[in-house]
Amino acid sequence: MSGYLEGVLVLLAVNVVFAYGGFLPLAAGQLNLGLAGFAAIGAYSSAYLSNVFKLPPLIAIAFAGIVAGAVALIVAAPVLRTRGIYLALATFALGQIVQAIILNLEVVGGAAGYPVAAFIRLPAIAATATVVVALVWLLFATRFGIAVTAVHDDETVADLMGIDVRAFQVAAFALGSAIAGVGGGLYAHHFSFIEAQYFNISLSITIVLYVLLGGTQTVFGPLLGAAVFTLLPEVLRASANWRYVAFAAALIVLMALRPEGLVTGAQLRRLLGLARAQPRHAEVAAALPKEPSG
C-alpha cells in the first residue's frame, strides 16, 4: 500500500472516530464545541502513558478514552446546566481552556509540542475505529438509542415517560468525549508529534460539521459525513485551501437543502425496504405544508 493511500485511510479512520465523538452529544441535542479539547486530553494523556510508562499504544489509547470521559463526567455537572446555544458556548470555552492549559504544561512540552515515541500503523487504527463504530451502532440498537433520541426530540415528554433526561445527557456527553479522546490518542500515535495548537476550535467545528452533514438521526450519518469530507477532496486532488472552500460551500448548500443531514431516519427505513408502502393517508399528509421539526 502506498504511503499516500495509507495516510488518507488513517485520516479517514481518525475522522470517523472524531465524528462519532460529536455524534453522541448531538444525538441528545447538545452541540459540543469543546470536542477538540477532549481530543487533546486523549492525545496528550495517551502519549504521556506510552512515553513515560511504556504502555503499549493501544492500551494507552484506551486509557486516553477513559481519561477524557472522566474529565467530561467531572465538568458535566456545571456545563450541562446550560442548554442550547449556551451549552455550545460553554463547551467552546472549555475547549479553549484545555488548549490553554496544555500550552502551559511543561511536562508535555508546552507550546513547543510533544513528540510521541510509539507508532501505530493503519491496521491498528482501522481496527480501533471499527470497534468504536461497532460499539456506537450496538449502543444505538438498544433502548439507549431510543431514549437519547426522545431526549433530543422532547425533553419534557421524555421526562414524563420516565426517562432520566439528565442521566442520558451526561452519558451522551461523557461517552462522546471519551470517543473524541480515543480519536486524539490514535492521532498522536500515528503522527508521532502533537501540539496544542492543532486541537483548536476549527477542529471542533470541523468534527461537528461532519456529523451535521451526515445527519444526526441515524448512526450511519457520521460515518458518511466523515467519509465524504475526507475522501472527496482527495479524489478531487484540490489544494488544501480549495478543499476548505469546497467543504464550506457544500456545507452551506446542504444545510439549506437538507437541514437534517444527508441521511435521515425515515429515508433509511425506506431505503432498507423496511417501511411498507406508505399508508394511504400519507398522500394527504404529503400534500399539506410540512411542519418544521425541532
Binding site: V208, V245, A248, L251, M255, P259, E260, S293, G294
Partner: peptide
Amino acid sequence: QEFVPLVSSMAFLLLFEH
C-alpha cells in the same frame, strides 16, 4: 433545526478565511 443557521455561519467563516 436550532443548530442549522449556526452551522452554516461556521461554514461561512471557513469559506471566507480560505
